[in-house]
Amino acid sequence: MRRYFGRKLLLYGLTFFVAVTINWMIPRFMPGDPVSTMLARRTVNDPAAYEQMRVYYSDLFGLDKPIWEQYLNFWGSLLQGDFGISVWAFPTPVGSVILSALPYTLALVIPAVLLSWVVGNWFGAFAARRKLLDSAVLPVGYLLTAMPYMWLAALLAWVLGVVTGWFPFAGGYSFSRTPELTWPFIQDLIMHWVLPFLSLFLVALGGWAIGMRNMIIYELDSDYSNYLGALGAPNRLIRRYAFRNAMLPQITGLALQLGVIVAGAVVTEIVFAYPGLGLTILRAIQNLDFFLLQGVFLFIVVGVLIANFVIDVVYLLVDPRTRIGVA
């Protein structure tokens, strides 16, 4: 068991190192210069002053050093928990920009991923081999899962936001309010959360339902199901066993989905102007904000790694076959 986790942790460590390095590299290979972008916004006309400011900011961000030194400095400050200063939201540190956006994304993604997974699996399992329901669930599921996130988001915003006016469709809360811990504000938050959540939830739901339905049909056809059937075991028991076994690939699927759902969250947040990490990524790219981009990606990498680790542990609990490999 200890060797297994040791190996796993080593693998995760290596993945972390490579991912962080790539995160560091990507913005630096993007065309453009963040300092001149920043200065362009200041509209400095005096060339001497411009040069002075350029030198000052380059030094401040550490961009005047050779590239390898920048890389080492990056790791050095990262290990001290220092992500640098945001160019876009200068002079706010990247850490606090991310921390203010993170709750929105987490509140959006975690319920959307987990709920769509639970409901989708349950629904798919229930529909499998039940003729009428199945012929309804299958096409609806395919329709949902084939929808691009932003398209469904735009559709929801239009129908439930513009046409019916039930839900607000822009921002994390009303512009007229200031964040505070009062009931009306929380209510406002929730109302703004519904549409982005729904668009993520619905797209993922279809995929899970179809996957589970197919798995259950496969499992109900398997030898152990047939054997139980031949011994007259009630459908309830056979379906319960099939469900348990069909869950295993779905758990793996969940782990794989976690990385993708972040991408889904990016476009969804952009459509709804929802102030989470997705919108932050967009802002960071638009402003060539290396540090912010690095920081956000780092959070995503860490998030996906943690999620995968949790799934590894869950897998150990639910599938005895993996436990044997471990012992």
Partner: peptide
């Protein structure tokens, strides 16, 4: 099971793996 029972061809995979 009570009156008629079966030892199947596929005994190797007849038991629920989980």
């Amino acid at each position: 099971f009570f009156e008629v029972s079966l030892i199947p061809q596929y005994s190797m995979s007849a038991l629920n793996p989980t």
